[in-house]
Design a protein around this nucleic acid. Sequence first.
DNA 1: AGCTAGCATCTTTTT
DNA 2: GATGCTAGCT
Length: 725
Amino acid sequence: MTQLLEGLNTQQQKAVQTTDGPLLILAGAGSGKTRTIITRIAYILEQRLAYPDQILAITFTNKAAGEMKERIAGMGIAGSERIWMSTFHAACARILRQFADRLGYTKRFKILDAADQKQLMKAIIKNQELNPKEYVPAKIISKISRAKNDKKSPDDLRQEAKSKEGRITAQLYARYNEELRRSDSMDFDDLILNANRLIRSDEEVRNYLQNKFKYILVDEFQDTNRPQNEFVKLIGAKNANVCVCGDEDQSIYGWRGAQVENILNFTYEWPDAQIVRLEQNYRSTSTILNCANAVIKNNKNRLNKKLWTENGESDAKLQVIDSESPITEASFIADKVSELLSRGYRYGDLAVLYRANYQSRSIENAFVNAGIPYKTIGSLNFYQRAEVKDMLSYLALIESNKDDVAFERIVNQPKRGLGPAAIEKLREFAEFKGWGLYETVQNLEDVPTLTNAQKNKFKRFRNIIETARDSSDTITGRLETLFEQSGYADYLSSEKVENGQSRLDNIRELITGAEQFDLEHPGAGLTGFLEHAALTSSTDETSEEGQVSLMTLHSAKGLEYPVVFMTGMVEDVFPSGLSISEGNEEEERRLCYVGITRAMEELYLCSYQTRFAGRDYYSCEPSRFINELPEELVEFKNYDRFGGLSDGEKRPTFRSGLGFNKEMLLENGQVGDKRSAGLKTGDLVFHKNFGKGVVTQYRSKKDMAVVVFPENGVKTMKGSYLTKL
DNA sequence: AGCTAGCATCTTTTT
DNA sequence: GATGCTAGCT
């Protein structure tokens, strides 16, 4: 009857064929979940249960959506490009573009990304004459986000406020919302909330959408938040063909408001729901899988699912490698990469995972030195780079004269003599009139306080935008005009700008990207392109064949690699001290579980004894997760930069708890003479008492060097005590 | 008024 | 080690 089911196990087949009514797929790591979902969609289409555009499939990232679309198209299914396959945010944006006028927005409403939000909040805080150190924009934004997702209005927040700080937060929340309204903008949360509001309040839209979407699928359901769950309930209410798929053990976005309850309560909210469990793992060796199981079973809040595999017990035990410092850890990984290559692995088979982005630095240094090609995934989103965002802000002003965030970003970038004083005068008048800042520039003659010189400068700025608007109908054409006319091209070409060339390259890439977007999305226009830029995340960049992938554990979700390195496996780094102090040990452990289950064949867990943070050194204890691994499945080794690997007989020992700081080290040193050693990171040096060492930090101004001595540990001293080797 | 250099500060994860 | 802010300079 159908060939689609071939090669699927019984449970997977059941998941595919259960098309009618609500369905919960509990899918463990590596259990063939994606394949099952894809087959399910193909099956629905093949059985003619729905047209492609009657299927709404939600994925966690745009990249996942793109890959799924491709795979379905590759199965020879007609019309697969018409499936609504995207993130929640993109799907809601698409709906809102169609009906935004019913909520009092225009169809060209702007979507604020995180940087925009922060900038806006900063401006509001300043405008309210509050101290931005006391009221940290990023923190206020996250409080507002939490309030929004809990359905709390500024008034609610004010009423429950117990402190001055709480009342001010409520007040900032109110101002923030007003400002979004005024500028025809929505933040990420608004996209979901407004879609829900629209569906709930507008009967016509509700009927249209509920009838349209015959089948709804949601992947990574454990990472959905409350409004997202509500969106699913609203859209799926009529046909009830709602299939959600997830793994409570991989819920790692609690800090962003995701609630595991969505998946745990699914069968209560959809009483007829059937449940399919996918527990057979096809990805990892049994060694790796057993380690993953051993770690995650320390969590209490879970459904006690246990993954199993028919994959052989591998000879490769997990390797726990203890070394001196992050630098040494990095050189171990570089060494190991070469070895893995000689064993037949390719660069693309390898991934280095870490808890926080800053940890990539030491790895990148080591890889550059060793000539290992790598790609960092997710750290800096292309569209978030300063120069790219600047050009997008110019475009945004063509799109809307109410976009103050964009205006403030680029009105004096590059410098054109329009400083805070001139802008302040403009703002006062804009506020008085209820206009946007650029709107005010379009009506400059009315502003009495500006000097003629200032007016002329603003006029020149206006010319740039208006010229670009008229110069072309294509995004590419307008971008090129803006880039030249704004002076940005000259600015980046000038000698004094740092990284001018690579920033020019970024702009060129942006222009090429815009061209491609135009081709692939005819009719999307400037609005579509700006939306694309706002919703395209950093993890949407793909790993590449000839490069080792570097990324955070969060970014690694959903991916797999033959060989995986988990770095910084020490207390306070992973698990993150901050997260632990907030009581989130279980989420950190799930993150560890996600990391371990990315590995197919070999897994290396790296710890170190000292790290440098801020201006202090800390001695590090091995991560608690290392201690949760079954002894018999793990090999413990030590690595040092000179002697290489040696057997460690036991787990890395717990080291004395307290760190020591630079002041303490300085007190113990003598003041050396002034002759500069001219050291740099990576230099080999000799010290008369400590022997050979490697420079890991050097401050030329103070002639202070941080040196790792293999025999004597990490020391900080005047460079003048050292001889370069 | 605007710009620049130099100092301080802080690094969790992201649609 | 990048970003933000302040003080002092033009």
